[in-house]
Design a protein around this nucleic acid. Sequence first.
DNA 1: ACAAAAATCACACTTTAGTATGAGGGCAAT
DNA 2: ATTGCCCTCATACTAAAGTGTGATTTTTGT
Lengths: 169, 169
Amino acid sequence: MNPIGYSQLFYMTIRALFSKNRIGIVYGASLALLLFLLRWLELRFIIFNHAFEIYIGAIAIIFTALGIWLTLKLTNPKIKTVIVEKEVYLNNNLHFILNEPELAKQGLSKRELEVLQLMAEGFSNEEIATRLFVSLNTIKTHVSKLFEKMDVKRRTQAVEKAKRLSLIP
Amino acid sequence: MNPIGYSQLFYMTIRALFSKNRIGIVYGASLALLLFLLRWLELRFIIFNHAFEIYIGAIAIIFTALGIWLTLKLTNPKIKTVIVEKEVYLNNNLHFILNEPELAKQGLSKRELEVLQLMAEGFSNEEIATRLFVSLNTIKTHVSKLFEKMDVKRRTQAVEKAKRLSLIP
DNA sequence: ACAAAAATCACACTTTAGTATGAGGGCAAT
DNA sequence: ATTGCCCTCATACTAAAGTGTGATTTTTGT
């Protein structure tokens, strides 16, 4: 868009510096160079006179730095374990975990547990029988044995106990 | 028990060494001393010839150690914090909150809710009657009306629905 | 292969749960 | 005061739940 690009602008600036005050710049640069040279010579003299001390100092600095670096690199960070207690509400069956040791303790068979689950959902013996493709009498037998094993007398009691012991959601 | 004690035995051994082969021992000891001296001189010579390198090495070791010490002393200990989430399972009925709008929607009376709660705990109608000091027939009436209002057919169903709707813990 | 446990079913029987109907008293709102 | 709901109780009945006994088949562990 701009007819004069950045490279052109840069070139013009350099030219202005070198053309408008050429003699002054050269003089200044020479002076600076001389001063720099003198400084350098002075430094060399100092270095020459105190070469050993400077060498030792440099070694000391370098190895101190090495020590610091090594320590930072190699030390094991102290591990601080913060245990955050996360409250998990067992309000629904989304994260239900079966209490297997308790199930084993009650001695319920797989089928009995199945019947228990359906019972807890409010199904009648007849409905459970239909769902499991067995006869009503079979369900009654399961229910009876289940009550005996769980040491309860009624289905509502069985359901309450099963929920309490996390046998069912 | 043994008439000759341990101290006596030791003394006899020393005497045997110094008396039976005195010349040999002195000769051996002199030789060893000479060898040790030569070794020491050699070491001195090495140190003298490489004094500068050894000095530098010592400086390096000392300042590395200094760096390490400084770092350990002055830096804050690195602490890596590990956050571990520990799941705490809470018995939800401890913070049970009655779903009052739902209770109003079901239209259950105070007494009916009372009966429902006892039903959920596994009590029979007879037991509920005893606990509430009323007749079995009264409980049956409550239960029947309760079922009608909740649109269920069995107590297990009523309990399941009531729990689901947070009418009971 | 064999014993134990589990699963299935049946029949007879008892108990509990649930329904239908009616009825009396209490209490609050209109 | 009348209406409607709640709580109580009773009787009669039906349906469902639960018990006891016995039997057969399948599964499972040793």
